[in-house]
Amino acid sequence: MSAYLAKFDEPNPSDAYQIVGYQEYANALNHLVPLVKQADEEALAAYDKIIETMPELAIYTNLSRRFNFALAQSSSLTPLLRRTLSLYNASSLKDKEDLAGAEYRHTGIGWLIALARLEHGSIELGYQKDVNPFNLTHLTTVETPAFLELLLDGARSHYWAMNMDPVTHYLLDGNVPKVSDRTALAYGRRAVLVQKMLETLNRVAGAQFTPVQKQELQSWYDNLSEVREGVSYNVYETYKAAISQQGIQSIDLKGCPPLVSGIRKDISLGRGRISLAE
């Protein structure tokens, strides 16, 4: 029996360029951020007035409405969904379900920049290395409230979707046969993305949350760490099976850069050592 330390290729940064929105939102930010940085109140009002007349630029929020939590009847749900509904109902960070539909609609230059920052940053986090999440050094005053709302909205939607998804639970339970390595890595990418959203929320607006809400955000973060551990476990187990085959010299891992670096770190720290059969 000999010890084996896995070596990893760097992820391919050009993958991000294949995703629609990556270049486009970057170009949008490169024009709109300098514009608002040098704008006074009159200019900002003029931009908002123009954007208001363009119906294609409206943005709708409260994405968790898709789950119809407000209308769900507990009796007709599977145990997994019933548990999720119960957790959602107890959440201090729920969607604003009592609003009329029209109030989910937002327009304005701040919303435009905020959405571009969120979408571009989310692709970057999943597919690029050495990323400054959401490029906060260029976060502008006019977009900040919208950005925080979009961030929380996005994180919340991902979090509850993951909670309702059996694959998340297979990963948490270490049920390797049920999840392929590629699927596990994709789920790991999602967990990384949502954690970065939560970290950013805490960094920019930590003081705005109540202690109860902060505690809940922390619990979301911790739950996502468990999902990442499940992904790592899945990958280790897949390694073991693969490496036991004769003649394999090296194995490379490709996936979400922060996730890969986390797994690499685990292995280098001896937490994920893999043994080769003689």
Binding site: P11, D15, I19, V20, G21, L63, L118, E119, S122, I123, G126, Y127, G154, S157, H158, A161, D181, R182, T183, L185, A186, R189, R190, L193, V235, T238, Y239, A242, I251, D252, L253, K254, G255, C256, V260
Partner: peptide
């Protein structure tokens, strides 16, 4: 887009 792009299974071993 961020609700979908994470699921691109471009990773693997």
């Amino acid at each position: 887009r961020h609700e979908h792009t994470w699921s691109w299974e471009n990773g693997g071993i």
